[in-house]
């Protein structure tokens, strides 16, 4: 591994053939490389998420983050796209699955790809990671504090997000879940319910609830950042992807 990388904006084909803007990064050595689809959080396709994409490339993976709000218009700033998508209740689940499938296909089509693809997502992207892993053939998935997997959003929330626990039997790959003990969406109780359901179904998973951490503990640009949980969490992510995405 030379530690040299390429990073930049690419186009991927998403749900129903839509062309999506995406941010990709990959090592410049000859590989082979596992692939990682990064699903951004609800505030959108931002600088912090692009940094996560580069972090995976620095660790030897080809990574791509599709801009799930691309349909809000080309040339529109990501924060305006996020606001427009929020006003519509977020991204429909069916569209998300198609967009992640397109991003995974992009990674598998790269030169030096080893054919394995994992998915990781944060916040709303954590829920969407679980959705993708139950809807597509994926090799490994990491859910970082995704809410509304077990319980529906409160009625007054204008979010199109139904619980996904009924899909758990279709989970196609090992799942790593990283959560904060002080989080309320999802609460440690909800995490426990999901874990028990996956145990019952015999689905391979490993959940970790970090003490002194709440929602968004990986977010280095926010006051929710908790270095102890984030450093340990990243170690777990790379250990997990190392076991499941290397050739």
């Amino acid at each position: 591994m030379t530690h040299a990388m390429w990073a930049g904006t690419v186009a991927v084909t998403g749900h129903e053939g839509a062309e999506l803007e995406a941010y990709a990064a990959r090592p410049l050595d000859s590989g082979p490389h596992g692939g990682v689809v990064v699903i951004h959080h609800m505030p959108g396709y931002d600088e912090a998420t692009k940094e996560i994409v580069r972090k995976f490339a620095a660790h030897g993976y080809a990574a791509v983050c599709p801009n799930l709000y691309s349909r809000e218009g080309a040339g529109v700033s990501p924060d305006d796209q996020a606001a427009a998508a929020r006003a519509k209740g977020g991204v429909p689940d069916e569209q998300l699955v198609g967009d992640v499938a397109g991003a995974a296909a992009y990674l598998k089509g790269l030169e030096h790809a080893n054919g394995k693809v994992g998915v990781i997502g944060y916040c709303s992207g954590g829920r969407q990671t679980f959705l993708a892993a139950c809807s597509l053939q994926i090799d490994a998935a990491v859910d970082c504090y995704g809410a509304f997997v077990v319980t529906p959003p409160p009625a007054e929330f204008s979010l199109k997000a139904a619980p996904l626990i009924s899909l758990a039997g279709k989970l196609s790959c090992p799942l790593l879940g990283l959560f904060g003990a002080d989080d309320t969406h999802p609460s440690p109780e909800e995490v426990g319910v999901l874990s028990a359901e996956l145990d019952k179904l015999g689905k391979e998973h490993k959940f970790q609830i970090f003490p002194d951490a709440g929602h968004g503990f990986f977010a280095t640009d926010r006051s929710s950042y908790r270095p102890a949980a984030a450093v340990e969490g990243w170690k777990k992510v790379f250990g997990f992807f190392g076991r499941h995405l290397t050739a």
């Binding site: 916040c123 809410a147 204008s158």
Partner: peptide
């Protein structure tokens, strides 16, 4: 936490944007 809760309302006026 993410509240996702969005209060929407109709409004009539003008604003200066980018």
């Amino acid at each position: 936490m993410c509240t996702y809760l969005t209060e929407k309302f109709r409004i009539d006026g003008a604003a200066k944007g980018a």
